[in-house]
Amino acid sequence: MNAFEFISRYGGQILELTGEHLYMSAIAILLAIVIGVPLAVFMTRNPKIAVTIQTIINTVQTIPTISLLLIIMIFLGLGYSTAIVALVLYSLLPIVQNTYAGLENVDKSMIEAGTGMGMTRLQLLTYVKLPLALPIILAGVRIAAVVAVGSATIATFVGAGGLGEMIMRGISTTDDQKILAGAIPAAVLVVVVDMLIGKIEKRASYRVNTARTNK
């Protein structure tokens, strides 16, 4: 089968799988941000608990994929939800790691300046620390996004479709054409998603740098 025949036969299906793939990874990334960033902020305030949380996040990474999916299936059954929860758990690590490192790395003089201006802890966090750490946090988000899109191929294991369906069909029959038909759209998705976050990062980084030169 040449590439043209292949696409005319499977094109529609690939498009649908790509849509599912994007849907699941996008929600997973958003949830990972919504959970990961506050968690890391909490960790910078409670260094004792921070180590415990970090250990839990690390341990979750090491749970074998099928076992993790089986555990989540007890609560959510087959389908998107199970896949999304697994993806959130797998992509949390770089977001937490980078948010934590970014917040800890904020120039101490800036924090002192803020304190001197009479800022509360919340103000210090939202007006000084988070904006200054934003590029580092976004770098973590970009790593997480790539990991999420890359590992969303596991969704097929719980019947949630996505490009993994095409890839696994290729792998289970040693059919390279099908593997590529799944892997190439996944690679394109990664490039697109990364570019979108890159745009956000650029704007954030611009704002921070202007703030800095004005100091």
């Binding site: 099928i66 999916l69 007890i74 059954g77 087959l78 596991i154 294991f157 719980v158 369906e165 069909r169």
Partner: peptide
């Protein structure tokens, strides 16, 4: 059809759950 299930344990669990 619910295709692509990952391994025998996933199929067993899905049958038990009445997902399939």
């Amino acid at each position: 059809l619910v295709g692509g299930l990952g391994a025998t344990p996933v199929v067993l669990k899905a049958m038990e759950n009445n997902d399939i």
